[in-house]
């Protein structure tokens, strides 16, 4: 201990403290502060970059998922559209068929009606003509028949006889 105390030099202690203090101050100001700040900044930068990369990856996944979803949706929509189109086609065709059928039926009915009415008219015409002819014939026959009185009486008698029979 005594040897240690003997070795202790106040001058050296003084210079050491002074120089070390100065060195500490200068390094603090011009070296450690910028170095530690730079290292911190760099580490923060790396952390941020990693986080950003992670985010980008997630976003990428989201985008892929989204696009897949979109694709699925599009596919489903296409399916739906095709189905709808098919249905529409079917309805159109069936409607057209129906329409055509009803229209045809209608036309046929009209034709039938026309034919019927024509036929009726024709029949009526024929009846008329027949009636006229028969009236004319009957007139002529009757004129002929009635030209003599006996014959007229005979006819009336004949007719009355017919009524009796009825």
């Amino acid at each position: 201990m005594e040897k240690l105390l003997n070795e202790f030099s106040i001058g050296l202690f003084f210079w050491q403290t002074l120089l070390f203090g100065l060195l500490l101050f200068l390094l603090w100001k011009f070296a450690w502060k910028p170095i530690l700040n730079a290292v911190n900044d760099r580490e923060d930068g790396i952390k941020d970059a990693l986080a950003a990369a992670e985010n980008a990856k997630k976003e990428m996944q989201n985008v892929t998922a989204d696009s897949e979803k979109l694709l699925k949706e599009a596919r489903a929509e296409r399916e739906a559209l095709l189905k709808e189109a098919r249905e529409i086609k079917n309805t159109i065709v069936s409607d057209a068929k129906e329409l055509a059928k009803t229209e045809g039926d209608k036309i046929i009915k009209q034709a039938q009606a026309a034919i019927e009415s024509e036929k009726k008219a024709a029949v009526a015409d024929i009846k008329n003509q027949v009636a006229n002819l028969s009236v004319e014939i009957a007139e002529k026959v009757i004129k002929e028949e009635l030209s003599d009185k006996s014959k007229q009486l005979k006819l009336v008698e004949g007719m009355l006889g017919d009524i009796k029979l009825n």
């Binding site: 001058g11 050296l12 210079w15 050491q16 120089l19 100065l22 011009f30 070296a31 450690w32 170095i35």
Partner: peptide
């Protein structure tokens, strides 16, 4: 003394080294 000189030289070396690193 010799030690003070050495401290001084070391101090200068450290200053140069670490300011240039900064």
């Amino acid at each position: 003394t010799k030690n003070v000189v050495m401290i001084f030289i070391t101090g200068l070396l450290m200053l140069w080294l670490f300011t240039s690193l900064a």
